[in-house]
């Protein structure tokens, strides 16, 4: 009983508290939401018109819209956790969190949940606009399997984000630079604007290690090609395995990096 209450106080409550701040902060100004829908739409529109100009089949519109919508989770959930933690460090809040009894993974869960909520509002709007403006067509019968794959992708991203957030805490600006350097390779390997089946086999295997690539491929197959659980069970299994592996590795990496931060006095170091 005591253990249960302790977990609640140290893990779940910080998560709820931090998610509330991120949701409230991210949506307090309606015009921000509008901008954050319009800006990705500009890129999505550009790629859709590029495809149209090259005479691509209409199904590519759906590929691009889903790619644009899901890629936001990579930036806002996974790196959102790290970046927010970096800013907490810069503004002096991180030392308060670390001094309190809260667990850091709980705090990061809150950041991830807040990021997921905020991104979902924007991504949903992007998809609806895509349907309305570009007449993209999706198959709705397979929505449940698409949602399952989507959910597993987000959980796996949280696990991966745990470890990568540690980079921001310990290495500060270098962590930000690593984040920036990884953006384009991830965009490419996840197949943001095209199916990963067009990759050579070796690249497909490498992409298979990324939850976003598997998740995006699964959601696309479900919503654009109408594939059900029988065709997509491998996606589900891979994502479940990645979730467990990334969570364990991420937690270990985070603890190790925080330990390094404590040892080298980097946890309260700012502007570096």
């Amino acid at each position: 009983m005591r253990r249960g209450r302790s977990t609640w106080n140290r893990f779940i409550r910080p998560a709820i508290g931090r998610a509330y701040v991120r949701i409230k902060g991210g949506n307090r100004e309606p015009s921000w939401i509008l901008w954050e829908i319009i800006l990705p739409m500009i890129m999505i529109a550009s790629v859709i018109w590029a495809y149209e100009n090259m005479g691509a089949p209409p199904i590519f519109k759906g590929f691009v819209i889903l790619g644009g919508a899901m890629m936001s989770y990579w930036y806002n959930v996974l790196w959102g956790m790290g970046r927010t933690l970096y800013w907490e460090k810069e503004t002096g809040n991180l030392e308060l969190f670390l001094l309190s009894d809260s667990k850091l993974p709980g705090l990061l869960l809150g950041m991830a949940l807040g990021g997921m909520f905020n991104t979902s509002i924007r991504s949903l709007a992007v998809i609806l606009l895509g349907v309305y403006v570009f007449k993209a067509q999706f198959i709705l019968d397979t929505v449940p399997i698409a949602l399952l794959i989507f959910f597993l992708t987000l959980v796996a991203l949280y696990g991966l984000g745990l470890g990568l957030s540690g980079l921001h805490v310990v290495y500060g600006r270098m962590g930000v630079r690593i984040n920036e350097a990884l953006d384009e390779p991830i965009m490419f390997l996840s197949g943001q604007y095209y199916p990963i089946t067009s990759f050579p086999l070796l690249l497909q295997y490498i992409a298979g290690l990324l939850p976003l690539a598997i998740g995006l491929d699964g959601v696309r197959r479900a919503l654009l090609l109408g594939e059900g659980f029988n065709q997509l069970y491998l996606h589900v299994i891979i994502l479940m395995v990645l979730t467990v592996v990334f969570y364990l590795l991420g937690l270990r990496m985070l603890n190790k990096l925080v330990e390094i931060g404590r040892r080298d006095g980097r946890l309260i170091l700012r502007w570096l």
Binding site: M54, M187, Y193, Y194, P195, S198
Partner: peptide, 14 residues
């Protein structure tokens, strides 16, 4: 390098 891969693959995918 990866940025051009993203866009070149738009063409390659088609």
């Amino acid at each position: 390098f990866f940025s051009v891969l993203v866009y070149a693959y738009i063409y390659i995918a088609i």
